[in-house]
Structures are given as C-alpha cells and as structure tokens.
C-alpha cells in the first residue's frame, strides 16, 4: 500500500531542549493515523515540520513524495490542514471565507461546507471572530471538506471543544473520509473519542515513540494488574515487562503487554511477594495514561 506520509529519523530541538529523537512512522493511503501524546510532547511540532513551517534539526518528512519543507503549491492543494485551535480568518464571515478559499482549489465542493453551516443554523454573514470555539471548528472542517483534499491533517481537532462538538466533528469527518477514500493524519490529547476511528496510531512520550500499533490492538494487548504487598521495601522498576506502575500505600498497579502468567513468573523470578493479583479493566484513556504516566 502506498505511503502518503513518511517520517524518517526525525529529530527536533528548540535551542538545546530535545523535543523528540529519531521518530519514524508512515501513513498509508486511505488510513486514519493518529499521533497521541500528552500536551508538550511535540505533536504540533511534528505537524509544523510536516507542513514546512519549521525546519527539523535532522531527519525529514516526505508528504505525497515531496520534502515537507519544500512542498510545491500543487502538493499543498492536495493537503487539507486544520491548524491547532481551529485557526481561521476571523475577520471574514461564513460566506466570505468560502468565497475566498473556493478560488484556490479546482475540486472545490461548496455543498460540503454549506451543508455543515446549514446544519449549525449559521447565518452566512456571521463573522468568524464572533463564533464559539465549537462553531469555528465546524467552519474549519467544512472548508477542508470543501477543498476535497487527498490527505487531511488535523492538529488537535478536539482543542476547546465540548463532547457534543467533538462527536459532531468526528461524525462528519468519518462519513466524509470513508465515503471519499481520504487519508487522515490527526493528533489529539483526548483519546477516548478516537478508539473507534483510528486505524493506526503512535503514542509519543518524552522525546520518543512509546508505541506504534493499531489502537484496538493496543487496547486488547495492554493490561493493568493490581495487587497488594506487605513488603515495605518493594522497589519496582520500568522495563520490557513493566511499562509503568503506580503505588498508593501498599496497593500497586502495574501496566504491561504481558499476560498474568508471565507477570507471576516475573514476580517469582524477582522474589516479589504479592496478594490478590488480578487484572482490572481499562478504558482506552486509562490505558493511554497507564502507558504515558499521569504527569
């Protein structure tokens, strides 16, 4: 399957501060790919590099077979970009902004835009600067859909949106993407909404990729085990088996990709005494926090 985005050994620093090192991933045509990570992990930095707004310290990103920092106008026309915070020309009205963008794209489909605006009961002379964050998100999405691009790049679409607007955004996005065979690259720090829509994902942590796999596989293969111990001197450490752990008094929670028998074998090998070891159910969000840590 053809790759629409290829990230190759990408490293970026702000001054001396390393943001991430040697990131590698690919996005396949027709797939919805997500980059998940807590705030400040470099999600927007990746998008800024991807769109040529930032030069990476080393490595590169290829978008539709072009170097990201040298995207031609023709290639940019094939990419729909939702900027962080649903950035829009605030000084324009609903109608003006559509009229403006329509002149740049040959496959412009204004019906996608106005369908969304009509659904929101939006007056066409409503100025974008006077809109709520949720309304602005729909304007931004409507414009990208009308552009009819091959790839949609959505930078933290969920920022500032309540649950209702997030669902509306995703419902429209999904219908549009599946009906038109589009590729999507999206970032978010609210991940519970994404469980059903993302085909493949990477989770980035401090300076590196923590995980790359389909989100359903992650939910099914990542486990949380809770146990109690009397051992006051128990010192757990993160390794290939224990990805993360939390301690509240003598109650331990450990996160692992291994099954309960492997965990028991590991405890036996390390002479760790425990009581009441059991796996507890996790939502995607809990699994995400389990992997990335709470802070």
């Amino acid at each position: 399957m053809q790759n629409v985005i290829e990230c190759i050994n990408l490293t970026h620093k702000y001054g001396k501060k390393l943001i991430f090192k040697d990131l590698n991933f690919t996005v396949q045509r027709g797939k919805i790919f997500g980059i998940l990570g807590k705030n400040g992990m470099g999600k927007t930095t990746i998008i800024n590099i991807m769109m040529g707004f930032l030069q990476p310290t080393s490595g590169r990103i290829m978008v539709l077979s072009e170097e990201s920092h040298n995207l031609s106008p023709q290639t940019r026309a094939r990419i729909g970009l939702l900027h962080e915070g649903h950035l829009a020309y605030d000084f324009m009205t609903v109608e003006q902004v559509e009229k403006f963008y329509s002149k740049f794209f040959t496959n412009w489909k204004k019906e996608f835009y106005y369908e969304l605006m009509n659904k929101m009961d939006m007056n066409y002379d409503h100025k974008i600067s006077r809109m709520s964050c949720g309304q602005r998100s729909q304007v931004a999405l409507g414009l990208i859909m009308a552009q009819n691009p091959e790839i949609m790049i959505l930078d933290d679409y969920s920022m500032g949106l309540d649950a209702g607007y997030r669902m509306l955004f995703l419902d429209y996005l999904l219908e549009y993407v599946h009906g038109n065979n589009k590729s999507v690259f999206m970032t978010s720090h609210i991940i519970q909404d994404l469980e059903k829509i993302i085909d493949d994902a990477i989770i980035i942590g401090y300076q590196k990729i923590l995980l790359q796999m389909p989100i359903k596989e992650f939910v099914n293969s990542f486990h949380r085990y809770c146990f109690i111990t009397d051992s006051e001197s128990l010192q757990l450490e993160k390794n290939d088996i224990i990805k993360n752990f939390e301690v509240i008094k003598n109650k331990y929670s450990i996160y692992s990709f291994h099954d309960i028998n492997e965990i028991k074998a590991y405890f036996k090998q390390k002479n760790i005494s425990y009581e009441d070891l059991q796996e507890t159910f996790m939502t995607l969000e809990e699994a995400f926090i389990g992997l990335t840590g709470k802070y």
């Binding site: 769109m51 040529g52 106008p73 023709q74 940019r76 026309a77 900027h83 950035l87 020309y89 740049f104």
Partner: peptide
Amino acid sequence: TKNRFRLSFHLPID
C-alpha cells in the same frame, strides 16, 4: 495574530 499567516502560507500559491 495567532500565527494566522500559516493559513496563507498553506494556500496553493507561491
């Protein structure tokens, strides 16, 4: 403001 120039710079024009 809000780095809105990025919108213009993403337009398919030199």
